[in-house]
Simulated assay, not measured.
Amino acid sequence: MKLYNYFRSSASFRVRIALALKGLDYDYLPVHLVKNEQLGESYASVSASRLVPLLKDGDAIVTQSMAIIEYLDETHPQPPLMPADALGRARVRTLSLDIACEIHPLNNLRVLRYLVGPMKIAEEEKDRWYRHWVETGLETVERQLATAPARYCHGDSPTMADCVLVPQIFNAQRFNCRVDHVPNVMRVFEACMQLDAFAKTQPSACPDAS
C-alpha cells in the first residue's frame, strides 16, 4: 500500500492512525500542500480531486479519509474500527462526521487561504474564525461524548471516531483554541495519545515534518 499524504494534514493523520492501529505497512509518499504539490501534474495524474490523503492498494485507489478508514476496516477487519452493532456504528459515524463535516471543512488550508487572499481578511481575524468554529464544534462533540462516557469515543477500544478526533485536537492546540470547556473530549484525547498508533503517527513524527 502507498499513502499519499502531508504531515500536517489532519485528514492524512486520521488515516495514518488507522493504518497503525491495524498494524499495516505502507509507503509514505509526501505531498506538500503549502508548496501546492497537490496541484502538480504528477499528483493530478493519480488524484482526480487533487486532495490528500489518497491510498493506493495495488490497483485500487481510495480517497477521502473516512472512506479510506472504512475500506481498511472492511479489507483488514482486525482490530475493528467500527462497532459490531448498527447503533454503535451509527454513533461512531455521527461523532466522526461532527468533526469531519462540521468543523474541519471550515478550517482547512483552502478555506484559510481564501479568507486571507481574495477575501482580504487579516491574519488575526482569520485566527478568530478558526477558533470560533473549532471551539463551538467541539462543544457538540463534548455533548455527544457525555451521553455515554467511555475510555475512548465509543467503548473501550479506539474506533474511527478517535482517528478523527485526535487530529482535530492537534489543530486546535496549534491555533491556541480553548479546550478547557470540553473535558470529555480532552480525556479521550489523552487516552488515545497513550497508544503508539496515535503518538507515533503525529505530525512531528512524520518524515516530511518541517
Results as ranks from 00 to 15, higher is better:
A146F: 09
H104A: 05
E142F: 08
L87N: 10
L95I: 14
A172Q: 02
R128P: 02
H76F: 11
E142Y: 03
Q168S: 00
E139D: 14
F175L: 13
Q78P: 00
L115S: 00
Y71W: 06
Q64A: 04
V141Q: 09
E139G: 14
E70S: 14
D127G: 01
Y71T: 10
Q144K: 13
R91N: 06
P167R: 03
L165V: 04
W133P: 13
T136A: 10
P80T: 09
Y130Q: 12
R89M: 06
R131S: 12
C177V: 10
R91T: 12
N108C: 04
C101M: 08
V92Q: 00
Q78W: 02
A67E: 01
A60E: 13
D98V: 09
L87H: 09
K120R: 13
T140C: 10
Y114C: 10
S65H: 10
I121M: 15
T63H: 14
L115G: 01
I103T: 07
T94V: 11
L81S: 07
D98I: 11
A67I: 07
A86K: 13
G137H: 04
E139W: 02
M119F: 15
T147A: 14
M160K: 02
E74I: 10
C177I: 03
M66I: 14
A172C: 09
I103P: 15
E135G: 07
T94P: 01
Q173R: 15
A86S: 13
H154D: 12
I69H: 04
Q173F: 00
V62E: 06
L106W: 01
A90F: 11
R113S: 11
G117Y: 09
E102H: 09
T94I: 10
A122Y: 09
R91C: 05
V164H: 04
P77H: 02
A100C: 07
K120I: 02
E139M: 11
P118E: 09
D156M: 07
T136F: 01
M119W: 11
A161S: 03
L87C: 08
A90T: 08
V62P: 02
A86I: 11
Y152A: 00
R113C: 09
M119D: 08
M160S: 08
E74K: 15
E70T: 15
R128K: 14
S157Q: 15
C153I: 05
I68F: 03
K126A: 10
I169Y: 01
T75F: 05
N171Y: 09
T63C: 12
I99L: 11
D98K: 12
H104K: 04
E125N: 11
P80Y: 01
E139K: 14
P118M: 06
W129D: 00
Q168E: 07
T63N: 10
Q173G: 07
A150C: 09
K126I: 03
V166F: 00
L145T: 01
I61R: 12
V164E: 03
A122Q: 13
P167G: 01
E124I: 08
A84V: 12
